[in-house]
Amino acid sequence: MSKHAVVSQILPFSCVDGPGSRLVIFLQGCNYQCKNCHNPHTISLCDACGDCIDSCPEQALSLIHSQALPLPQMRSQEMSLHGDPIPVNHSPCSSPCSSPSKPHIVWDSTKCSQCDTCLAVCPRQSTPKTSHYTVEQMLEVIYGQRHFINGITLSGGEASLQLPFIIELFSAIKSSEHLSHLSCMLDTNGSLSSTGWHKLLPFLDGAMVDLKAWQQDTHHYITGRDNQPVFTSIELLTQHNKLYEVRLLHIPGITDYEHDVDALVGYLSNLPTETRVKLNAFHHHGVKGIGSTWPQCTQADIARLANQLTQRGVTNIVLPSLYI
């Protein structure tokens, strides 16, 4: 049986998610709780409480009780693939998903006006605006775009939480006559375990990994998780020549890239020369809670960080293509 995924969004054309023109598939659900998250509603999975239904001005939302909806194959077994075993404060969709008689939220995208009232209402900071895709359905989407893209990128949320779907999708692409020219990339927070990576590696062309902070403490403060698994992932990807990009999201005064610049550079300069070191600038768009009180990162902040890295010998730095 084909795997399913809970998809929060499909972006048909992106210039910033890997080489060339890319179709980006954002999967719903994340095991981090970043205070600086720009899409906090992609973190939790909907538990079909129904609270958002009446708030929708377009009647785009409803509850159904059948098992017609395919269920995402994630959780217990996949969660264990992620380095950090600490349970996060959401238990993604296990209740609605494992019990077909329980209700599911149905979102009619043709009625939706994208007013985002439902996001504001949701007590779980989730979204009802997700869709379920089987691997076959996703392959159809990709097939329709194949002349326009150089590849696909799985992003999130944390895409690797739905690893079996990704493996099946990537392997189907690699073995398809019409799609095998497409590169398959993963955009990840780096929490996937070595076991998980080894299952994916045969079908993966490259990964973009977030290194959200240098120090364990800082990383834990920002994301709620340790960064040891991230370093392990980066090393493993390096060994297998699959590390396309390491991403540093700079928040002046909060991230420690500048404070620990020597140690950071020592680490980054040992990465393969082809690996891009992508600097991203923190901005407030979408950010909730304390993160929205942090300073935004300006072009000058990025320039200063880039300068410090370059002076100490980091090559292949990629700057943001725009600042908000």
Binding site: C15, V16, P19, G20, S21, I149, N150, S321, L322
Partner: peptide, 13 residues
């Protein structure tokens, strides 16, 4: 304008 840093994307499009 993100395409400026990724002309390959314009080419493919």
């Amino acid at each position: 304008e993100t395409v400026k840093a990724n002309p390959q994307a314009m080419f493919q499009l």
